[in-house]
Design a protein around this nucleic acid. Structure first.
Lengths: 136, 136
DNA sequence: ATCCTACGATGGACGGAATCCAAGTCAAGA
DNA sequence: TCTTGACTTGGATTCCGTCCATCGTAGGAT
């Protein structure tokens, strides 16, 4: 149990059993769970927890920068607890598994000013697609 | 791109008024329309065209590689008729509009071998996020 | 320790996007 | 022109996620 709960408390989070359950689920393995999967795991500890609460809590964690959202083509969003280390994703086109990867350099720097069209560009998200060893 | 219909016919596509209407919508400006927008524009020519047909046809065009799907967080997918020229996307977090952009260098080259975990990496998709001039 | 109250939780209704399905229609080869 | 299987239709359905009115409770105040 890391200091995630401590950080949240320090930011004025009102600590409830539900929020603790969700935070503890995400604090575990570095997998990329959907909101429903988070709900299922949280419900093992706290059977009455509602889906709405899980969505609310995930949204708050994202807003606080403790968790990142990963949107995978049309399916349910996934939530990535590895938010403090910048990284990108490698997705297997066969089975859909996601791995965190760390490309070199800053992808933002690759977009020249004249290609920004007046946008205030905040981030660059890179998704590598391919086949994992077992699907190849 | 006006030979799109020819290419499709050459691939054994049965040419119907509905498919022609959808293909002609995409053959126009290089904007990134949602399925509903494609439906609305196709319906100007062919008032009774159904949403299901638009979805079917878009799916077929994607499978044929004539159109690319662009999934933008939580919003409706957009369809990119510019499928033959490699490019990346700049997305406005405010209104969802998408622009094609051309970063320098090859994003694939930035993923070191030891970060590929045995995957056969086929492509890198980069999404730049920010605010467009009117949303800023 | 107890009280208060504003913030959080609940779950059912709701909404948008996309898919499914059974029935009707029609393009195009014979 | 006929035939047939591919295509179209629109309504129902699923999947994800949000909204909302109501109830519960964490934690500061007393």
């Amino acid at each position: 149990m890391s200091d995630l709960l401590e950080r949240l408390r320090g930011r004025g989070w009102r600590m409830t059993a539900q929020r603790r359950a969700v935070a503890e689920v995400l604090d575990g393995d570095h997998v990329h769970l959907t909101a429903d999967e988070v709900h299922a795991r949280a419900a093992q500890r706290l059977p009455e927890i509602s889906r709405a609460t899980v969505y609310n809590t995930l949204g708050e964690l994202v807003a606080l920068g403790e968790v990142k959202e990963v949107s995978t083509d049309g399916r349910a969003k996934r939530y990535d607890p590895n938010a403090h280390q910048p990284h990108q994703h490698l997705v297997c086109s066969g089975c859909g598994t996601i791995r965190d990867v760390h490309p070199t350099g800053d992808p933002l720097a690759r977009l020249p000013l004249e290609e920004r069209f007046g946008f205030t560009v905040a981030e660059a998200e890179v998704t590598y697609r391919g086949l994992c060893p077992s699907c190849a």
